[in-house]
């Protein structure tokens, strides 16, 4: 189980303001998902790929593995839409007595939705691989989300890190003892793991809250946020970039 988050603290974009990275990823994501032509998402995909792999230095193999699921999903959707969703005949395939007719409007629909999906996924991956959770919390606070929501998110984040480690340890221990060797055993092993994890975390949550209360916890976890403003030049560059994408959308034929 590899989390994308582990790369956020050791990539080459680490010194760049988290707010800027979030803004860049989210704005591009929005422009990409509102695109009316498939060329803009394709462009976004290439730019985000370059930023993530070349500039930030995320291992290409790891990135390729992450793209595998969206690519597979994209391929299935593409084929489905091409053959079953339109009505204007485009071309036909004859295979073993079966005739499949591809459609022109189905092709258009497939091209734009799969394109938008791939472009958006690359934006999401950029954000997930380069921006530490702490910076994203800062942005969530700036968005004025309710305190209880942010606090709960922070606590859940903390527990996820602890529980995943514990779950992996238990899984190794079970595998050493022939857990997961057949289907029935897998069900038993998984539910033992999960049940035990639940009970143990339940108790540790109790203890943690006692510890926090005795240190003056008042329902909000106070952390120092990165208050440094985003350099104006970077903001201008970002605005220019998004403007180019938007105007490409307006110029290019649908």
């Amino acid at each position: 189980m590899q989390f994308l988050e582990q790369f956020t603290l050791k990539n080459k974009l680490n010194g760049v303001s988290g707010k800027l990275k979030t803004l860049f990823a989210v704005l591009t994501l929005l422009v990409c998902s509102f695109s009316t032509t498939f060329i803009v998402p394709l462009l976004v995909f290439c730019i985000m790929l370059a930023f993530t792999v070349v500039v930030a230095g995320i291992p290409p193999r790891f990135y390729a593995k992450l793209m595998l699921a969206p690519a597979g999903f994209g391929l299935v959707s593409f084929v489905l839409m091409l053959f079953f969703f339109g009505k204007e005949p485009f071309f036909s395939i004859h295979a073993g007595g079966l005739t499949l007719t591809a459609t022109k409007d189905g092709f258009d629909m497939a091209l734009i939705s799969v394109g938008r999906m791939l472009g958006s996924v690359s934006c999401l991956l950029f954000l997930a691989l380069t921006t530490p959770m702490a910076d994203i919390f800062t942005v969530l606070k700036k968005l004025k989300l309710p305190d209880v929501f942010i606090d709960l998110s922070m606590l859940i984040y903390r527990f996820i890190v602890v529980m995943v480690e514990e779950a992996l340890r238990m899984e190794y221990a079970q595998k050493m003892r022939l857990g997961y060797s057949d289907v029935k055993g897998s069900f038993r092993a998984l539910s033992l793991l999960a049940g035990n994890l639940f009970v143990r975390s339940w108790d540790s949550a109790d203890k943690m809250l006692t510890a926090m209360n005795s240190r003056g916890y008042d329902g909000i976890i106070h952390v120092l946020d990165d208050e440094s403003p985003i350099p104006r030049l970077h903001l201008l560059g970002l605005a220019g970039f998004e403007l180019v994408l938007v105007s490409l959308n307006l110029i290019l034929p649908r």
Binding site: M1, L152, L155, F159, I160, S204, A205
Partner: peptide, 19 residues
Amino acid sequence: ETKSLLAVAGAFAFVLSAL
């Protein structure tokens, strides 16, 4: 005291979904 328990439940759902 329920807040930390809710957080555990949320994290648990996440860890389950990652398994």
